[in-house]
Design a protein around this nucleic acid. Structure first.
Lengths: 157, 157
DNA sequence: TATTGTTATACTCTATAACTATA
DNA sequence: TATAGTTATAGAGTATAACAATA
């Protein structure tokens, strides 16, 4: 039977509401991810960029001239989303499509000079955002956390 | 200047595309969270439930008779989303609204008998999904990871 | 006047189908 | 015929404004 109504009229402590979920990795992962993600989003807002667009710039820098299809795969997004994303980066003047492949259906995607300079700044901001949004961890704990998460998501099976 | 097109015509290794991002906590957190979340989503699909709805059931069980506003706060969602969520749980016969408060604007939310039984099953599934989606971690690493994430997201500042 | 729950609405994110141009 | 990029569209998820009932 459901609990009787009278049992639950005590005031609820908001900070303790989800204690029973603290043992679920999926739950604490999501809460942590939301916190870090929101922090970075706020820091990128002055640049009119979203976290995914910062990620895209990083991948383009690492693989200048890659095709949109490769970028989509790297970001785990669908090709149509990649179109919108690259359009946005072009509109901001940070990246550009160049018809430079033997296969004339595709382009290479490259950072512009402005994009390269801007990305250097964004990297600092992202690293600082990581630190600021995880103040309760010391440097060793933060490195340990990154190592564990990397091991988790890079697993093939 | 942007790199010259010719530089980048080597084939791209998909597994290595995002190596430069591995040092960013926000990035590895997001990738790990997506992996674990998608796994749980698939496991809950036969029950016509989403991870957020499982979380709601957990919180209702822990705080039988809580108000919708408290549930929204606990889930970090807006009140209108809580309406849709509780509607869904009622439609599935897992929870119910009961007018049982001195304040007649609000209800208490309770698990039904079916909801209580179902939740026992769902807890097993969620714990197993955690383990299955993090096969590359041993038990100690998994516990360490949970402890670090909890410390991260529970920080108040 | 403020608050609980609700409706309506809009904006983002994401996924799919279908089109074009090359191959 | 298959593939790269694109367009159009629809479905989630999320946020805000405004309303009814109650305090």
């Amino acid at each position: 039977m459901a609990k009787i109504p009278e049992l639950s009229d005590q005031p609820v402590d908001p900070a303790q509401l989800d204690l029973a979920l603290d043992g679920y990795l999926g739950y604490v992962l999501r809460r942590a991810q939301m916190k870090v993600f929101q922090h970075l989003s706020a820091r990128l807002e002055p640049y009119d960029l979203r976290p995914a667009q910062f990620t895209a710039l990083m991948i383009i820098e690492q693989h200048p001239g890659l095709m949109q299809a490769d970028l989509a795969r790297a970001l785990a997004i669908e090709p149509p989303q990649a179109v919108v994303l690259v359009n946005k980066l072009e509109k901001l003047g940070l990246a550009m499509r160049v018809r430079c492949k033997p296969d004339k259906r595709s382009y290479g995607i490259f950072l512009s000079k402005v994009g390269e300079v801007r990305l250097r700044e964004l990297k600092e901001i992202a690293l600082q955002s990581d630190i600021d949004s995880t103040r309760s961890l010391d440097r060793h704990e933060r490195e340990q956390l990154i190592a564990l998460l990397r091991k988790l998501y890079r697993e093939t099976r």
